[in-house]
């Protein structure tokens, strides 16, 4: 990677931002699907499915969505660190 060339640096910044926005869109789609999708909009349909003593829609609304949120943030942090390392724009 050529760190001396300012044009390349601009390219890397643009590439970094593109990848970041793409990753954001994917993760926010999952964020929306588990909470507003499974927990609100389609809760009745999912409630006909049972997992153990839980109705599935209810489980997503009160447990599943929260676990997914935690995982999403750590996935984002890990992916971003990897992208930054690859493009050489990280702070680590």
């Amino acid at each position: 990677m050529n760190k001396e060339n300012p044009a390349k640096t601009g390219d890397r910044a643009a590439a970094y931002w593109r990848e970041n926005v793409k990753l954001l869109c994917i993760l926010l789609a999952i964020w929306f699907a588990v909470s507003f999708g499974a927990g609100v909009l389609f809760v009745e349909a999912l409630n006909t499915i049972r997992i153990g003593g839980f109705k599935l829609g209810f489980w997503f609304a009160q447990q599943g969505s929260i676990i997914t949120f935690v995982i999403l943030i750590f996935v984002y942090a890990a992916h971003m660190s990897a992208i930054e390392k690859r493009l050489g724009v990280g702070d680590e």
């Binding site: 954001l24 993760l27 926010l28 964020w31 909470s35 927990g39 609100v40 809760v43 209810f58 609304a61 009160q62 969505s65 929260i66 949120f69 999403l72 943030i73 984002y76 942090a77």
Partner: peptide
């Protein structure tokens, strides 16, 4: 609140945790 609201209490559970995803990503 959840004891008395049941499923309706989910708004607080999801609402007060889901915001951290927005915070961390955006």
């Amino acid at each position: 609140i959840i004891a008395f609201a049941g499923y309706d209490g989910s708004v607080y559970l999801m609402g007060w945790t889901g915001g951290y995803v927005l915070l961390a990503l955006l």
